[in-house]
C-alpha cells in the first residue's frame, strides 16, 4: 500500500519537475518572467510531492529511505532540489533554474530507472550512522550541484547577454562567483563530514576506518579537487572563469563518485 502511494507521489513529483524544467527552457527562449516564476512554483510543488514520497517510503520501510541505489538517487535529487530552492529564493535569479532544473531532472530520471523494491537492510547497513552519513551526503551533493549550475550560468553569461532580454535575470559575474563559492564551501564542509562519519561507520562495520575502497578513494579525489579550488581561488585569485570550470569538473567527480563507482568499479559500497 505504501509502495503504491509512494509510486503516485514520486511520479507526480517527476511530472511536475518535468513541467518546471520545460517552463524554465521556455523562459530561456521567451525571456518572459512569468514563465520562470511559474517554473519556480512548479519545482517547489514537485519538491513537496517528492518530500511526501520519501516520507511515505520511510514509513512503509520502517527506516530512513537511504539504503539502495534507488533510495539514494531519489534522496540525492531531493537534496539538489532543496539546495536549489534555498539558493533560488535567497538570491532570486531565474537563470539558475534553467541550468539547475535539468541536473535535477537528470538525477531523478536516474532514480526512476532503478528498482523500487523495498529490501531489508543487510546487517552492515543497520546503523544509525547510515542516516547521518547519507543525509550529509545529500546536502553536500546538492550544494555541489548548485555550484555547478551557477558556474554554468557564469560560463554562459557572456553568450546569453548578447541577447539584452537576459540582463535583468542574470546577476553580475561577481555575484555569480560568490554564490558558487558559498555553495562550494557548504558542500566542502558537508563532504568532509560525510567522509568522517563514513570512516567512523566503516570502523564499526568492517573494522577499518579507511580501506581505499573505490568509493572512499573517489570521495577523496573530489575532496582534493574542491580543496584545490578553495586555495587557488583564495590565494591565487582564481576567480571567475577558471573557478567556474573547476566547480563544473568538481561536480563531474561528484557524479562519478556516486553513479560511476557503483556501476563501473567494484568495492564494499557497491551492494547499494
Amino acid at each position: 500500500m505504501f509502495l503504491t502511494i509512494e509510486n503516485y507521489l514520486f511520479t507526480a513529483a517527476m511530472a511536475v519537475y518535468l513541467g518546471g524544467t520545460a517552463l524554465f527552457f521556455l523562459f530561456a527562449v521567451t525571456k518572459k518572467e512569468r514563465h520562470a516564476r511559474i517554473a519556480g512554483v512548479l519545482i517547489t510543488v514537485g519538491f513537496v510531492f517528492h518530500t511526501l514520497a520519501l516520507v511515505v517510503r520511510g514509513i512503509g520501510a520502517g527506516r530512513l529511505p537511504m539504503a539502495n541505489q534507488y533510495e539514494f538517487a531519489t534522496s540525492f535529487a531531493w537534496g539538489i532540489c532543496l539546495c536549489f530552492l534555498v539558493f533560488y529564493y535567497r538570491y532570486r535569479f531565474y537563470a539558475l533554474g534553467v541550468f539547475a532544473a535539468p541536473i535535477l531532472f537528470l538525477v531523478i530520471g536516474y532514480a526512476a530507472m532503478q528498482s523500487r523494491e523495498v529490501r531489508e537492510l543487510m546487517p552492515a547497513l543497520r546503523s544509525s550512522w547510515l542516516g547521518i552519513h547519507v543525509s550529509a551526503a545529500i546536502i553536500a551533493y546538492g550544494a555541489f550541484g548548485v555550484s555547478c549550475a551557477v558556474s554554468m550560468v557564469f560560463l554562459c553569461r557572456a553568450r546569453l547577454l548578447k541577447n539584452k532580454a537576459w540582463e535583468s535575470y542574470i546577476p553580475e559575474e561577481e555575484a555569480l562567483d560568490r554564490i558558487s563559492y558559498r555553495a562550494v564551501s557548504l558542500g566542502f564542509l558537508f563532504l568532509t563530514f560525510v567522509m568522517i562519519t563514513g570512516a567512523i561507520w566503516a570502523e564499526r562495520a568492517w573494522g577499518s576506518y579507511w580501506s581505499w575502497d573505490p568509493k572512499e578513494t573517489w570521495s577523496l579525489i573530489t575532496w582534493f579537487i574542491y580543496a584545490a579550488y578553495l586555495h587557488l581561488r583564495m590565494n591565487r585569485g582564481w576567480r571567475g572563469k577558471r573557478a567556474a570550470v573547476f566547480a563544473v569538473v568538481g561536480f563531474a567527480c561528484v557524479l562519478f563518485t556516486y553513479v560511476g563507482v557503483n556501476t563501473l568499479l567494484p568495492g564494499l559500497h557497491s551492494y547499494a
Binding site: 578513494t217 577523496l220 579525489i221 582534493f224 580543496a227 584545490a228 563507482v261
Partner: peptide, 17 residues
C-alpha cells in the same frame, strides 16, 4: 602544495581504476 594535491588525486585515480 597544489601540484602535490593534483598528483595525489591522480594517484588515487590510478589506484581506483
Amino acid at each position: 602544495a597544489m601540484v602535490l594535491l593534483v598528483i595525489l588525486a591522480s594517484a588515487c585515480l590510478a589506484g581506483s581504476l
